[in-house]
Amino acid sequence: MPTYVKNKPLEHIELELLLEGVFRQYGFDFRKYALASLRRRISTAIQAEGLATISELQNKVLHDPDCMERLVLTLSINVTKLFRDPSFYIAFRQKAVPVMRTYPFIRIWHAGCATGEEVYSMAILLEEEGLYERARIYATDMNEAVVKKAQAGIFPMKSMKEYTANYQEAGGTRPFSEYYTAQYDSAILRPELRRNVVFSAHNLATDGSFNEFNVILCRNVMIYFNQVLQERAQTLFRESLVNFGILALGRKESLRASTHEEFFEPLDTGERLYRRVK
């Protein structure tokens, strides 16, 4: 359990110094992350490292790259599931797939892919809709270690029961076991599912656009950004989408009150699917 720190003004100074130091030494920019949840995760890291203050964490992190690697893992939330939010995939099949059928070639950017669960879910969906052959998914995350994990496509066997239920609820009709082979405690996803997936490191806080896309998925990633960084990422998405390209956000994220709202129209209001219209 993270210790709740009360000494507020000093803690703010320490936090700013830590984030500044991490950015300058390692290039990871957490300075514009949403504060409340960032503070919680830093408390968790302090506890896990057996330290007492943010300053001690700063000292350790700056001198010890292994500690930095652990910190990046703690600060980035990589909790996700295959076919998480099944209703999203149903809406995607109904509203986005018909649009995608009109494209001869479909470029998809999965921004903030974490350990890849949602990337493989999309690959399975495209395969079932007969679109996989003409699709290419660019799956990116800021953390290279996490991207490698995503690329491996190996998930705990004990999660497969839940994932199978998600898959069925998401409109899947095949036996889900077709998509993986069981080996000891692991489920290894069929390698063909990543035939058209390109995994790479990309940081929404510091990197720019790298291609033009028909679909961009960025679900439950920008909730960790403050409004300034959110604005940056949304600009990046708008500039990277073709006209009438589709943007998919998390269930409780929206473009409401964003300066980009006027460039998009909702494709599915409940599941936060948008279409770029200008």
Binding site: Y4, A34, L35, A36, S37, R40, I77, V79, T80, I223
Partner: peptide, 28 residues
């Protein structure tokens, strides 16, 4: 979570097996 003037959401691991957790809202 409560931020300065607005709410924020998070999908961090459950606390006390709960997400949403009361501790997270109250502490923020």
């Amino acid at each position: 979570l409560v931020e300065n003037g607005h709410f924020a959401l998070s999908t961090e691991p459950p606390v006390w097996f709960a997400r949403p957790a009361i501790d997270v809202l109250f502490e923020s």
